[in-house]
Simulated assay, not measured.
Amino acid sequence: MLTEELLTLAAAAGAAVATAAGTDAWEGLRTRLGGWLGRGDARGGEGALAELDAGAAELLADGTPTRAELERYGAAWRDRVITTLERLDGPEREEAAAELHRLVEREPAAREVRGGDQHVQGGIRVHAEQGSLAAALINGGVSFSPPPPPVRPEG
């Protein structure tokens, strides 16, 4: 079983793949991640590159993907990274995690998923049901503002 840190790192890698698809960042990320997934095996690396290319082509086939499509694509690559890490043990897993960490650090979208500061644009809703307790720990600045006034429908 992987540590929470490795699971977060895998999620960051998946987010990087999803957000880089179809952008100028794609070629560099696909090359680096394909090499990482191949773990020094040329055939494995070529297979990973083919998977990355096929997945990106499918994701972008209908034009701009929806948020849900990007999330599914990122989750699939997160799972692929998790599977790769789970196959490794001890020092080999540590080395792979360090390499993945360096790879992910280069990708802006992935940095937002990884641990540390979480940046949220929009609202955060904390909800409890049936006598449960919900809370949010906020360590840092918080600002509150009233909601915008209601808008009267036209017509």
Rank of each mutant, 00 (worst) to 15 (best):
V113N: 07
W77F: 11
R80Q: 11
T8L: 10
G90Y: 03
L9F: 02
A135P: 01
N139H: 11
L103I: 09
A98W: 02
L103H: 02
R32C: 01
Y73T: 07
D89N: 09
T8I: 04
T64N: 10
P65I: 09
S145P: 00
V142N: 04
G123I: 12
R43S: 12
P149N: 06
R39W: 02
R111W: 04
A42P: 06
E27R: 12
L52M: 07
L103G: 01
G47C: 02
A128W: 09
E112Q: 14
A50C: 06
E27A: 13
L137H: 09
A134N: 03
G116I: 13
E107C: 13
A136F: 04
V81D: 01
L137M: 09
R114N: 05
F144A: 15
L100Y: 10
V151T: 14
D117E: 15
G45V: 05
R80Y: 04
G123D: 15
A21C: 11
E99S: 09
R111C: 09
R102S: 10
A11H: 04
D89A: 13
T83S: 14
L6P: 02
E86V: 13
S145K: 12
E71D: 13
L85G: 01
E71Q: 13
W26Q: 15
E154Y: 07
R114F: 08
E99D: 12
G34V: 04
G122L: 08
T23Q: 11
A12H: 04
G44F: 02
G90I: 03
E105G: 11
